[in-house]
Design a binder for these strands. Structure first.
Lengths: 233, 233
DNA sequence: CGACCACTTGAATTGTGTCAATTTCAGTGG
DNA sequence: CCACTGAAATTGACACAATTCAAGTGGTCG
Protein backbone atom coordinates (compact mmCIF):
# COMPACT_ATOMS: atom_id res chain seq x y z
CA UNK A 1 0.00 0.00 0.00
CA UNK A 2 1.57 3.24 -1.14
CA UNK A 3 1.40 6.00 1.39
CA UNK A 4 0.61 8.53 -1.31
CA UNK A 5 -2.75 6.86 -1.88
CA UNK A 6 -3.90 8.12 1.47
CA UNK A 7 -3.29 11.69 0.45
CA UNK A 8 -5.34 13.91 -1.81
CA UNK A 9 -3.31 16.16 -4.03
CA UNK A 10 -4.27 19.75 -3.61
CA UNK A 11 -2.10 21.64 -6.07
CA UNK A 12 1.34 23.10 -6.36
CA UNK A 13 2.29 25.31 -3.50
CA UNK A 14 2.95 28.97 -4.08
CA UNK A 15 5.47 29.38 -1.30
CA UNK A 16 5.82 33.07 -2.04
CA UNK A 17 2.21 33.66 -1.08
CA UNK A 18 1.90 31.02 1.60
CA UNK A 19 -0.39 32.16 4.36
CA UNK A 20 1.57 30.42 7.07
CA UNK A 21 4.97 30.98 5.56
CA UNK A 22 6.59 32.54 8.57
CA UNK A 23 5.46 29.62 10.65
CA UNK A 24 7.29 27.15 8.53
CA UNK A 25 10.56 26.45 6.88
CA UNK A 26 10.74 29.12 4.22
CA UNK A 27 9.86 32.06 6.39
CA UNK A 28 13.16 33.84 5.93
CA UNK A 29 13.66 33.37 2.24
CA UNK A 30 13.69 36.46 0.07
CA UNK A 31 12.71 36.90 -3.52
CA UNK A 32 15.83 35.64 -5.33
CA UNK A 33 15.86 32.52 -3.16
CA UNK A 34 12.59 31.32 -4.59
CA UNK A 35 14.14 31.12 -8.01
CA UNK A 36 16.22 28.24 -6.67
CA UNK A 37 13.18 26.05 -6.18
CA UNK A 38 12.96 24.10 -9.38
CA UNK A 39 11.15 21.03 -8.24
CA UNK A 40 7.45 21.42 -7.57
CA UNK A 41 6.25 21.48 -3.99
CA UNK A 42 2.97 19.65 -3.58
CA UNK A 43 0.24 20.52 -1.19
CA UNK A 44 -1.48 17.47 0.24
CA UNK A 45 -4.60 17.02 2.30
CA UNK A 46 -4.83 14.04 4.61
CA UNK A 47 -7.97 12.49 6.05
CA UNK A 48 -7.86 11.34 9.67
CA UNK A 49 -6.07 8.00 9.80
CA UNK A 50 -4.20 8.56 6.55
CA UNK A 51 -0.54 7.54 6.48
CA UNK A 52 1.95 10.14 5.35
CA UNK A 53 4.91 7.80 5.28
CA UNK A 54 6.03 4.54 6.81
CA UNK A 55 9.04 3.70 8.96
CA UNK A 56 11.86 2.27 6.90
CA UNK A 57 10.82 3.87 3.60
CA UNK A 58 13.58 5.59 1.69
CA UNK A 59 12.08 9.03 1.77
CA UNK A 60 12.75 11.59 -0.89
CA UNK A 61 10.81 14.33 0.83
CA UNK A 62 10.17 16.04 4.07
CA UNK A 63 6.89 17.62 5.04
CA UNK A 64 5.83 20.81 6.72
CA UNK A 65 2.58 20.64 8.61
CA UNK A 66 0.27 23.49 7.61
CA UNK A 67 -2.80 22.44 9.54
CA UNK A 68 -4.04 19.52 11.59
CA UNK A 69 -2.20 17.01 13.75
CA UNK A 70 0.16 14.16 12.90
CA UNK A 71 1.46 11.35 15.11
CA UNK A 72 4.87 9.77 14.74
CA UNK A 73 4.66 6.11 15.64
CA UNK A 74 7.41 3.64 16.38
CA UNK A 75 6.87 -0.09 16.56
CA UNK A 76 8.47 -2.11 19.32
CA UNK A 77 9.99 -5.56 18.83
CA UNK A 78 6.94 -7.15 20.48
CA UNK A 79 4.55 -5.56 18.01
CA UNK A 80 3.03 -2.92 20.24
CA UNK A 81 3.31 0.65 19.13
CA UNK A 82 4.35 3.81 20.85
CA UNK A 83 3.60 7.36 19.79
CA UNK A 84 6.85 9.21 20.03
CA UNK A 85 5.83 12.72 19.10
CA UNK A 86 3.00 14.84 17.79
CA UNK A 87 3.46 17.34 14.99
CA UNK A 88 1.40 20.47 14.94
CA UNK A 89 1.24 23.26 12.37
CA UNK A 90 4.69 24.69 11.78
CA UNK A 91 6.53 21.49 12.59
CA UNK A 92 8.47 19.47 10.05
CA UNK A 93 8.19 15.71 9.54
CA UNK A 94 10.89 13.54 8.09
CA UNK A 95 13.94 15.65 8.84
CA UNK A 96 15.99 12.46 8.89
CA UNK A 97 15.96 12.30 5.09
CA UNK A 98 18.34 15.26 5.16
CA UNK A 99 21.04 13.03 6.61
CA UNK A 100 20.27 10.24 4.20
CA UNK A 101 18.32 8.04 6.55
CA UNK A 102 15.06 6.29 5.77
CA UNK A 103 12.07 7.51 7.72
CA UNK A 104 12.44 6.60 11.36
CA UNK A 105 8.75 6.57 12.17
CA UNK A 106 5.38 6.02 10.63
CA UNK A 107 3.53 9.32 10.29
CA UNK A 108 -0.26 9.22 10.53
CA UNK A 109 -2.76 12.06 10.49
CA UNK A 110 -4.97 12.23 13.56
CA UNK A 111 -7.22 14.93 12.18
CA UNK A 112 -7.93 16.55 8.85
CA UNK A 113 -4.40 17.64 8.01
CA UNK A 114 -2.68 19.70 5.34
CA UNK A 115 1.01 19.36 4.52
CA UNK A 116 3.51 20.56 1.97
CA UNK A 117 5.77 17.95 0.48
CA UNK A 118 9.23 19.36 -0.04
CA UNK A 119 11.67 17.22 -2.00
CA UNK A 120 14.95 16.66 -0.29
CA UNK A 121 16.74 18.13 -3.29
CA UNK A 122 15.03 21.48 -2.84
CA UNK A 123 16.21 21.81 0.73
CA UNK A 124 19.71 20.72 -0.16
CA UNK A 125 19.92 23.20 -2.99
CA UNK A 126 18.62 26.07 -0.90
CA UNK A 127 20.85 24.96 1.89
CA UNK A 128 23.92 25.42 -0.24
CA UNK A 129 22.94 28.83 -1.53
CA UNK A 130 21.42 30.66 1.37
CA UNK A 131 22.31 30.52 5.03
CA UNK A 132 18.89 31.81 5.94
CA UNK A 133 17.39 28.37 5.73
CA UNK A 134 19.93 26.88 8.10
CA UNK A 135 18.67 28.75 11.07
CA UNK A 136 15.16 27.55 10.39
CA UNK A 137 16.26 23.99 9.93
CA UNK A 138 18.13 23.97 13.19
CA UNK A 139 15.14 25.42 14.94
CA UNK A 140 13.10 22.51 13.70
CA UNK A 141 15.66 19.95 14.83
CA UNK A 142 15.72 21.66 18.17
CA UNK A 143 11.95 21.75 18.36
CA UNK A 144 11.75 18.03 17.73
CA UNK A 145 14.45 17.25 20.25
CA UNK A 146 12.91 19.43 22.89
CA UNK A 147 9.56 17.75 22.41
CA UNK A 148 11.18 14.34 22.64
CA UNK A 149 12.61 15.29 26.02
CA UNK A 150 9.27 16.57 27.21
CA UNK A 151 7.58 13.35 26.27
CA UNK A 152 10.11 11.39 28.22
CA UNK A 153 9.99 13.50 31.35
CA UNK A 154 6.36 14.53 31.42
CA UNK A 155 4.42 11.88 29.55
CA UNK A 156 6.35 8.79 30.57
CA UNK A 157 6.88 9.58 34.23
CA UNK A 158 4.52 9.53 37.19
CA UNK A 159 1.10 8.02 37.71
CA UNK A 160 -1.47 7.46 35.01
CA UNK A 161 -3.49 10.44 36.26
CA UNK A 162 -0.49 12.73 36.12
CA UNK A 163 0.48 11.65 32.64
CA UNK A 164 -3.00 12.01 31.25
CA UNK A 165 -3.42 15.43 32.82
CA UNK A 166 -0.12 16.57 31.33
CA UNK A 167 -1.12 15.20 27.96
CA UNK A 168 -4.29 17.25 27.88
CA UNK A 169 -2.42 20.32 29.03
CA UNK A 170 0.16 19.89 26.29
CA UNK A 171 -2.49 19.44 23.64
CA UNK A 172 -4.55 22.36 24.83
CA UNK A 173 -1.71 24.84 25.17
CA UNK A 174 -1.66 27.65 22.66
CA UNK A 175 -5.08 26.72 21.32
CA UNK A 176 -8.56 27.71 22.36
CA UNK A 177 -10.82 25.08 20.78
CA UNK A 178 -11.34 21.60 22.14
CA UNK A 179 -8.64 18.94 22.09
CA UNK A 180 -9.29 16.47 19.29
CA UNK A 181 -7.89 12.97 19.50
CA UNK A 182 -8.36 9.68 17.75
CA UNK A 183 -9.25 7.10 20.34
CA UNK A 184 -8.26 5.52 23.64
CA UNK A 185 -5.70 3.28 22.06
CA UNK A 186 -3.71 6.30 20.90
CA UNK A 187 -4.02 8.02 24.24
CA UNK A 188 -2.46 4.98 25.84
CA UNK A 189 0.28 4.81 23.22
CA UNK A 190 1.20 8.42 23.93
CA UNK A 191 1.59 8.17 27.67
CA UNK A 192 2.90 4.64 27.77
CA UNK A 193 -0.11 2.92 29.30
CA UNK A 194 -2.46 0.17 28.29
CA UNK A 195 -5.68 1.04 26.54
CA UNK A 196 -7.82 -0.03 29.47
CA UNK A 197 -5.93 2.14 31.91
CA UNK A 198 -6.27 5.07 29.55
CA UNK A 199 -9.99 4.51 29.24
CA UNK A 200 -10.45 4.19 32.98
CA UNK A 201 -8.50 7.31 33.71
CA UNK A 202 -10.37 9.33 31.08
CA UNK A 203 -13.63 8.16 32.62
CA UNK A 204 -12.41 9.17 36.05
CA UNK A 205 -11.47 12.64 34.78
CA UNK A 206 -14.91 13.04 33.29
CA UNK A 207 -16.57 12.13 36.56
CA UNK A 208 -14.38 14.63 38.36
CA UNK A 209 -15.36 17.24 35.72
CA UNK A 210 -11.74 17.83 34.75
CA UNK A 211 -12.72 17.20 31.16
CA UNK A 212 -15.89 16.89 29.10
CA UNK A 213 -16.35 14.88 25.92
CA UNK A 214 -19.34 16.46 24.20
CA UNK A 215 -18.77 14.38 21.09
CA UNK A 216 -16.49 11.35 20.74
CA UNK A 217 -12.80 12.17 20.95
CA UNK A 218 -13.34 15.90 21.35
CA UNK A 219 -12.38 17.05 24.81
CA UNK A 220 -12.99 20.29 26.65
CA UNK A 221 -10.52 20.73 29.47
CA UNK A 222 -10.46 22.51 32.80
CA UNK A 223 -6.87 23.62 32.53
CA UNK A 224 -6.44 24.85 36.08
CA UNK A 225 -7.80 21.68 37.60
CA UNK A 226 -5.69 19.55 35.28
CA UNK A 227 -2.67 21.55 36.32
CA UNK A 228 -3.24 20.49 39.90
CA UNK A 229 -3.44 16.83 38.97
CA UNK A 230 -0.34 17.09 36.78
CA UNK A 231 1.72 17.98 39.84
CA UNK A 232 0.07 16.43 42.85
CA UNK A 233 -1.24 13.05 41.83
CA UNK B 1 29.10 27.30 41.93
CA UNK B 2 30.61 27.79 38.53
CA UNK B 3 30.56 24.75 36.32
CA UNK B 4 33.98 25.55 34.99
CA UNK B 5 35.45 24.79 38.38
CA UNK B 6 34.69 21.17 37.87
CA UNK B 7 36.83 21.04 34.77
CA UNK B 8 40.57 20.95 34.44
CA UNK B 9 41.92 22.94 31.55
CA UNK B 10 44.09 20.84 29.31
CA UNK B 11 45.28 23.24 26.66
CA UNK B 12 44.23 24.73 23.37
CA UNK B 13 43.02 22.21 20.88
CA UNK B 14 44.88 21.73 17.64
CA UNK B 15 41.87 20.71 15.58
CA UNK B 16 44.03 20.19 12.54
CA UNK B 17 45.87 17.39 14.28
CA UNK B 18 43.02 16.04 16.37
CA UNK B 19 43.24 12.28 16.71
CA UNK B 20 39.50 11.81 16.68
CA UNK B 21 38.72 14.55 14.23
CA UNK B 22 36.69 12.50 11.83
CA UNK B 23 34.56 11.29 14.70
CA UNK B 24 33.53 14.77 15.61
CA UNK B 25 32.28 17.99 14.22
CA UNK B 26 35.20 19.22 12.19
CA UNK B 27 35.90 16.04 10.29
CA UNK B 28 35.15 17.49 6.88
CA UNK B 29 36.90 20.80 7.17
CA UNK B 30 39.81 21.44 4.87
CA UNK B 31 42.86 23.58 5.36
CA UNK B 32 41.49 27.04 4.51
CA UNK B 33 38.52 26.47 6.79
CA UNK B 34 40.72 26.32 9.84
CA UNK B 35 41.83 29.86 9.22
CA UNK B 36 38.29 30.90 10.11
CA UNK B 37 38.65 29.70 13.68
CA UNK B 38 39.77 32.76 15.54
CA UNK B 39 38.55 31.98 18.99
CA UNK B 40 40.52 29.40 20.93
CA UNK B 41 39.02 25.98 21.42
CA UNK B 42 39.79 24.60 24.86
CA UNK B 43 40.34 21.03 25.74
CA UNK B 44 38.88 20.09 29.12
CA UNK B 45 39.21 17.04 31.28
CA UNK B 46 36.37 16.16 33.64
CA UNK B 47 36.52 13.97 36.70
CA UNK B 48 33.61 11.60 37.33
CA UNK B 49 30.76 13.61 38.81
CA UNK B 50 31.97 16.92 37.39
CA UNK B 51 29.34 19.22 35.92
CA UNK B 52 29.93 20.46 32.39
CA UNK B 53 27.02 22.88 32.38
CA UNK B 54 23.74 23.44 34.15
CA UNK B 55 20.20 23.61 32.81
CA UNK B 56 19.07 27.18 32.30
CA UNK B 57 22.56 28.64 31.88
CA UNK B 58 23.02 30.96 28.94
CA UNK B 59 25.62 28.91 27.19
CA UNK B 60 28.20 30.41 24.93
CA UNK B 61 29.66 27.10 23.88
CA UNK B 62 28.89 23.63 22.76
CA UNK B 63 31.05 20.62 23.51
CA UNK B 64 32.26 17.62 21.58
CA UNK B 65 32.90 14.53 23.63
CA UNK B 66 36.35 13.13 22.91
CA UNK B 67 36.42 10.39 25.52
CA UNK B 68 34.36 9.20 28.44
CA UNK B 69 30.64 9.33 29.15
CA UNK B 70 28.32 12.23 29.95
CA UNK B 71 24.73 12.17 31.20
CA UNK B 72 22.14 14.79 30.34
CA UNK B 73 19.83 15.29 33.28
CA UNK B 74 16.50 17.03 33.47
CA UNK B 75 14.79 17.95 36.70
CA UNK B 76 11.09 17.33 37.14
CA UNK B 77 8.74 19.71 38.91
CA UNK B 78 8.69 17.42 41.98
CA UNK B 79 12.45 17.55 42.34
CA UNK B 80 13.31 14.08 41.11
CA UNK B 81 15.66 13.83 38.19
CA UNK B 82 15.57 11.89 34.99
CA UNK B 83 18.50 11.07 32.75
CA UNK B 84 17.38 11.91 29.24
CA UNK B 85 20.37 10.86 27.20
CA UNK B 86 23.95 9.65 27.39
CA UNK B 87 26.70 11.18 25.31
CA UNK B 88 29.56 9.04 24.13
CA UNK B 89 32.67 9.99 22.20
CA UNK B 90 31.76 11.71 18.97
CA UNK B 91 28.53 13.17 20.27
CA UNK B 92 27.93 16.88 20.80
CA UNK B 93 26.48 18.46 23.92
CA UNK B 94 24.68 21.77 24.02
CA UNK B 95 23.51 22.01 20.43
CA UNK B 96 20.64 24.15 21.66
CA UNK B 97 22.93 27.15 22.03
CA UNK B 98 23.02 27.31 18.22
CA UNK B 99 19.38 28.35 18.20
CA UNK B 100 19.87 30.83 21.01
CA UNK B 101 18.43 28.75 23.80
CA UNK B 102 19.95 28.29 27.24
CA UNK B 103 21.13 24.80 28.03
CA UNK B 104 18.17 22.47 28.31
CA UNK B 105 19.84 19.95 30.58
CA UNK B 106 22.50 19.59 33.18
CA UNK B 107 25.49 17.73 31.77
CA UNK B 108 27.51 15.62 34.20
CA UNK B 109 30.46 13.34 33.54
CA UNK B 110 29.94 9.74 34.62
CA UNK B 111 33.52 8.70 33.99
CA UNK B 112 36.82 10.36 33.36
CA UNK B 113 35.86 12.45 30.35
CA UNK B 114 37.55 14.70 27.81
CA UNK B 115 35.73 17.36 25.85
CA UNK B 116 36.46 20.23 23.51
CA UNK B 117 34.70 23.49 24.22
CA UNK B 118 33.72 25.18 20.98
CA UNK B 119 32.40 28.73 21.26
CA UNK B 120 29.12 29.29 19.56
CA UNK B 121 30.67 32.05 17.48
CA UNK B 122 33.13 29.64 15.90
CA UNK B 123 30.39 27.35 14.69
CA UNK B 124 28.33 30.25 13.43
CA UNK B 125 31.22 31.69 11.51
CA UNK B 126 32.17 28.39 9.94
CA UNK B 127 28.53 27.77 9.27
CA UNK B 128 28.31 30.86 7.14
CA UNK B 129 31.43 30.16 5.14
CA UNK B 130 31.46 26.46 4.49
CA UNK B 131 28.58 24.08 3.85
CA UNK B 132 30.72 21.17 4.93
CA UNK B 133 29.96 21.76 8.55
CA UNK B 134 26.20 21.72 8.00
CA UNK B 135 26.07 18.08 7.14
CA UNK B 136 27.95 17.24 10.31
CA UNK B 137 25.76 19.42 12.43
CA UNK B 138 22.61 17.85 11.10
CA UNK B 139 24.04 14.42 11.70
CA UNK B 140 24.51 15.37 15.32
CA UNK B 141 20.99 16.73 15.67
CA UNK B 142 19.75 13.55 14.10
CA UNK B 143 21.89 11.41 16.37
CA UNK B 144 20.47 13.10 19.44
CA UNK B 145 16.90 12.82 18.23
CA UNK B 146 17.30 9.19 17.34
CA UNK B 147 18.69 8.44 20.75
CA UNK B 148 15.84 10.30 22.40
CA UNK B 149 13.38 8.07 20.56
CA UNK B 150 15.25 4.96 21.58
CA UNK B 151 15.16 5.99 25.21
CA UNK B 152 11.45 6.47 25.05
CA UNK B 153 10.64 3.23 23.30
CA UNK B 154 13.24 0.90 24.76
CA UNK B 155 14.20 2.31 28.13
CA UNK B 156 10.85 3.66 29.28
CA UNK B 157 8.62 0.81 28.14
CA UNK B 158 8.10 -2.67 29.49
CA UNK B 159 9.00 -4.31 32.78
CA UNK B 160 11.92 -3.37 34.98
CA UNK B 161 13.80 -6.46 33.84
CA UNK B 162 13.34 -5.64 30.19
CA UNK B 163 14.41 -2.05 30.62
CA UNK B 164 17.50 -2.92 32.60
CA UNK B 165 18.50 -5.59 30.10
CA UNK B 166 18.10 -3.13 27.24
CA UNK B 167 20.12 -0.55 29.12
CA UNK B 168 23.06 -2.88 29.52
CA UNK B 169 22.81 -3.90 25.88
CA UNK B 170 22.82 -0.28 24.78
CA UNK B 171 25.80 0.55 26.92
CA UNK B 172 27.73 -2.50 25.86
CA UNK B 173 27.14 -2.18 22.12
CA UNK B 174 30.12 -1.22 20.05
CA UNK B 175 32.48 -1.60 22.96
CA UNK B 176 34.36 -4.56 24.34
CA UNK B 177 35.35 -3.59 27.87
CA UNK B 178 33.02 -3.69 30.84
CA UNK B 179 30.12 -1.27 31.24
CA UNK B 180 31.00 1.46 33.70
CA UNK B 181 28.25 3.29 35.57
CA UNK B 182 27.92 5.58 38.51
CA UNK B 183 25.53 4.02 40.94
CA UNK B 184 22.07 2.55 41.35
CA UNK B 185 20.41 5.93 41.59
CA UNK B 186 21.52 6.78 38.06
CA UNK B 187 20.48 3.41 36.72
CA UNK B 188 17.01 4.08 38.03
CA UNK B 189 16.97 7.59 36.60
CA UNK B 190 17.83 6.24 33.17
CA UNK B 191 15.13 3.61 32.91
CA UNK B 192 12.49 5.49 34.86
CA UNK B 193 12.42 3.36 37.99
CA UNK B 194 13.02 3.90 41.65
CA UNK B 195 16.45 3.29 43.07
CA UNK B 196 15.28 0.29 45.11
CA UNK B 197 13.76 -1.39 42.09
CA UNK B 198 16.94 -0.80 40.15
CA UNK B 199 19.01 -2.32 42.94
CA UNK B 200 16.74 -5.32 43.26
CA UNK B 201 16.76 -5.99 39.54
CA UNK B 202 20.53 -5.66 39.31
CA UNK B 203 20.87 -8.14 42.17
CA UNK B 204 18.50 -10.50 40.42
CA UNK B 205 20.54 -10.29 37.21
CA UNK B 206 23.68 -11.07 39.12
CA UNK B 207 22.12 -14.13 40.71
CA UNK B 208 20.99 -15.31 37.26
CA UNK B 209 24.55 -14.69 36.01
CA UNK B 210 23.36 -12.28 33.34
CA UNK B 211 25.87 -9.78 34.63
CA UNK B 212 28.86 -9.72 36.98
CA UNK B 213 30.11 -6.79 39.00
CA UNK B 214 33.75 -7.56 39.74
CA UNK B 215 34.33 -4.11 41.19
CA UNK B 216 31.66 -1.57 42.16
CA UNK B 217 29.81 -0.11 39.20
CA UNK B 218 31.77 -2.03 36.59
CA UNK B 219 29.62 -4.64 34.91
CA UNK B 220 30.45 -7.56 32.66
CA UNK B 221 27.46 -8.60 30.61
CA UNK B 222 26.25 -11.79 29.00
CA UNK B 223 24.87 -10.11 25.90
CA UNK B 224 23.03 -13.08 24.48
CA UNK B 225 21.22 -13.82 27.71
CA UNK B 226 20.38 -10.16 28.18
CA UNK B 227 18.98 -10.10 24.67
CA UNK B 228 16.52 -12.79 25.66
CA UNK B 229 15.35 -10.86 28.67
CA UNK B 230 15.04 -7.65 26.67
CA UNK B 231 12.37 -9.24 24.54
CA UNK B 232 10.66 -11.89 26.60
CA UNK B 233 10.28 -10.57 30.11
C1' DC C 1 -31.24 -7.38 12.13
C1' DG C 2 -26.69 -9.09 13.03
C1' DA C 3 -21.73 -8.26 12.71
C1' DC C 4 -18.23 -5.60 13.96
C1' DC C 5 -15.63 -2.20 16.35
C1' DA C 6 -14.31 0.82 19.98
C1' DC C 7 -15.07 1.63 24.42
C1' DT C 8 -16.32 0.53 29.22
C1' DT C 9 -16.26 -2.05 33.32
C1' DG C 10 -15.16 -5.88 36.53
C1' DA C 11 -12.15 -9.00 39.12
C1' DA C 12 -7.85 -11.22 39.90
C1' DT C 13 -2.94 -10.89 39.46
C1' DT C 14 1.40 -8.96 39.20
C1' DG C 15 4.79 -5.41 39.58
C1' DT C 16 6.56 -1.36 41.40
C1' DG C 17 6.67 2.32 44.79
C1' DT C 18 7.24 3.39 49.47
C1' DC C 19 8.93 3.28 54.12
C1' DA C 20 12.13 1.47 57.04
C1' DA C 21 15.74 -1.42 58.90
C1' DT C 22 20.16 -3.30 57.95
C1' DT C 23 24.62 -4.08 55.68
C1' DT C 24 28.82 -2.73 53.48
C1' DC C 25 32.49 0.06 52.72
C1' DA C 26 35.56 4.11 52.57
C1' DG C 27 37.09 7.79 55.03
C1' DT C 28 38.27 10.20 59.43
C1' DG C 29 40.05 11.00 63.75
C1' DG C 30 40.99 9.55 68.38
C1' DC D 1 44.70 -0.04 65.31
C1' DC D 2 40.10 0.46 66.13
C1' DA D 3 35.87 2.81 66.84
C1' DC D 4 33.02 6.29 64.69
C1' DT D 5 30.69 8.39 60.77
C1' DG D 6 28.23 8.98 56.51
C1' DA D 7 26.96 7.52 51.96
C1' DA D 8 25.39 3.97 48.92
C1' DA D 9 23.42 -0.43 48.44
C1' DT D 10 20.67 -4.20 49.92
C1' DT D 11 16.69 -6.36 51.70
C1' DG D 12 11.99 -6.95 53.76
C1' DA D 13 7.12 -5.94 54.34
C1' DC D 14 3.20 -3.69 52.83
C1' DA D 15 0.10 -0.78 50.03
C1' DC D 16 -1.38 0.52 45.85
C1' DA D 17 -1.46 1.19 41.01
C1' DA D 18 -1.46 -0.81 36.54
C1' DT D 19 -1.77 -4.99 33.57
C1' DT D 20 -4.27 -8.70 32.07
C1' DC D 21 -8.11 -11.41 30.84
C1' DA D 22 -12.80 -11.38 30.28
C1' DA D 23 -17.43 -9.95 29.93
C1' DG D 24 -20.58 -6.52 28.69
C1' DT D 25 -22.19 -2.06 26.53
C1' DG D 26 -23.07 1.08 22.87
C1' DG D 27 -22.76 2.57 18.39
C1' DT D 28 -22.37 2.24 13.16
C1' DC D 29 -22.81 0.15 8.80
C1' DG D 30 -23.76 -3.28 5.55
Amino acid sequence: MNAAWDAAWQGFAECRRCAVRDLVLFGDLCEPDFALIHTPIDELKLAPGATLYTAGEEGGSLFTIRAGLVKLVQFLPDGTQRIVRLLRPGAVAGLEVLVGRPYGHTAVALQETEVCRIPRTVVERLSKETPRLHARLMERWDQALQQADVWLTELSTGSARQRLARLFLKLAEGRDGPVVLSGREDIGAMIGLGMETASRTVAEFKRARLIREPSPNRFECDLDALGEVALGG
